[in-house]
């Protein structure tokens, strides 16, 4: 229990922001025509690939001089996989969303 309270206190700004972001998310999405549900879902999916930043930090600060240690090497490899997956999510997600929307554009002339 104490660690939860501690977590709340140390992250209070972030938690404030989160509470407001949730409302922002609700506000931005409501009143979307169902035509756009799929591209929107796909676009949001690409944004959730922001985990890629975590992958960059992880691999970026991995200690490359100490790889003979099995644990370090395993972590580096897992980190590279996280980065690969994250990139797939981000690049694939944005490209596929653009492809869906390209079609709407063509007809809107």
């Amino acid at each position: 229990m104490e660690s939860i309270l501690h977590f709340f206190y140390t992250n209070k700004e972030a938690i404030f922001i989160i509470a407001l972001t949730i409302f922002l998310g609700l506000e931005v999405i409501s009143n979307v025509p169902s035509v756009l549900h799929t591209p929107l879902m796909s676009g949001a999916n690409a944004i959730s690939g922001v985990i890629i930043i975590g992958g960059i930090i992880l691999v970026g600060h991995a200690d490359l001089s100490n790889l003979s240690d099995g644990g370090h090497l395993a972590n580096l490899i897992l980190g590279i996989f996280a980065l690969l997956f994250g990139t797939l999510n981000v690049i694939g997600g944005f490209v596929v969303t653009d492809r869906m929307l390209e079609m709407f554009k063509k007809k809107k002339k």
Binding site: G25, I29, N45, S48
Partner: peptide, 8 residues
């Protein structure tokens, strides 16, 4: 994205 996905 979590909030937007939830409302969607």
């Amino acid at each position: 994205v979590g909030a937007a996905g939830m409302i969607l």
